[in-house]
Write a protein that binds this DNA or RNA. Structure first.
Lengths: 215, 215
DNA sequence: AGATAATGGATAGTGCTGTTATCCGATGTG
DNA sequence: CACATCGGATAACAGCACTATCCATTATCT
């Protein structure tokens, strides 16, 4: 197919497709002459992927580039595959306040030690956690953190599920794509599920506090 | 204090403070004359809050405005307080594909029914969940969703922790602020914890797969 | 008191990002 | 052969979050 049909099928405008081609997000089609190229199903899929990462996962184009680079890399073994992927798709750091960050770091260190997690401080998520904790404390919302280990345990359950999937998959290219999508698209899904679960818990408690309806 | 000192203490430049004032994110100081105003600790705190929502929670200025409006509202009762807040701080919808969205919606409906959650479809998170699920399926990463109820249960644990905090707090203004901050700043924290937990689970499984070191 | 600096307020300009438009000569299609 | 479409390069655009400039006024310093 040519660019017009690719546009029609994918729902992405021709100028935008050209822009993605320029930026290297989308691989060029196969040139059949000086100004004709053939695109195929892989291009359609790649476009869907880009739009999903932008619209649903909320990534910037630069973030999409990193994510796609991770997906396109061909890992040689499962060993530390996840660690390498995490480094590549990590969000850029936010907080600059060194003092606050150091305090957050201490809390993360304590948490990790407390739970006996086998995690290294160079994981970008370590810094993200430290930033989030420092910020929450700085705003006087420390109460939220009283249950930090509880939150960590719940996310550990999530992580178990994340990796349970990996056990069944032998193809490393397929695995790495699932890890990336599971992480990046999984985040907004988990956020939404949290909000829904909050509504359930809230309404459950409300009912418990009110005498049962005799009707 | 005047705007210069407010800037020095908060680390936000004077032009930016003026911009926030114009936009109504920051309430005006008390005018002592035509071109002099007094600011206080509340302004410092509000600035920290804005920066946290932008830098850590990743909100746009419009999103910050909504969040602040939610924080500033004075609820008359605990009843459905959380639901109202959730509506106000919800992220704007992403997906337009009606067919895909409808399928996602069916999956959310099934999930909620399956778990017996007391949740209404007008919760904005319902749509977000449907969007995320539809997107993941559309990209052929449906395996990720095989454990959807597991993810939902884990997030239910998180929600229990979220609301456990609320029980101890009697002041509604304080409560609403904690709910907003716990949600918006809690999201990146949970994401980071998920990544850390994944590293732990991964390294644990690696060790289990390798014969124990005799040393 | 007089020089200097800072202030509130209005208005305009900036840099970045993501996308869209225009133009070209070449190619495909009816 | 007419006319749409193409790939490719370059320019233009809109939105966002700031940042800079200007002004008449007010505060501060000596």
């Amino acid at each position: 197919m040519r660019i017009g049909e690719l546009s029609r099928i994918s729902g992405v405008t021709v100028p935008t497709i050209k822009y993605y081609l320029r930026d290297g997000l989308l691989p060029p089609g196969e040139l059949t002459s000086r100004n004709q190229a053939q695109y195929d199903e892989r291009h359609v899929r790649r476009l869907k992927l880009i739009r999903a990462l932008v619209d649903v996962a909320g990534l910037s184009i630069a973030g999409v580039r990193d994510a796609l680079a991770a997906i396109d890399s061909h890992p040689d073994s499962r060993h530390n595959l996840l660690g390498k992927v995490m480094h590549r798709i990590a969000a850029p750091p936010a907080l600059a306040d060194d003092a606050a960050l150091a305090e957050g770091d201490i809390e993360v260190t304590a948490l990790v030690k407390d739970l006996g997690w086998d995690v290294k401080p160079d994981n970008p998520a370590w810094r993200s956690a430290a930033e989030a904790i420092a910020t929450i404390r700085a705003l006087g919302a420390g109460v939220v953190l009283d249950r930090l280990t509880g939150y960590a345990r719940a996310m550990h359950d999530v992580a178990e599920l994340d990796l349970a999937m990996a056990a069944d998959i032998t193809d490393l290219d397929q695995l790495i794509e699932l890890v990336v999508l599971g992480s990046l698209l999984g985040d907004p899904l988990l956020t939404a599920l949290r909000r829904l679960a909050e509504e359930d818990v809230s309404s459950r408690r409300m009912r418990a506090a009110i005498p049962p309806d005799p009707a």
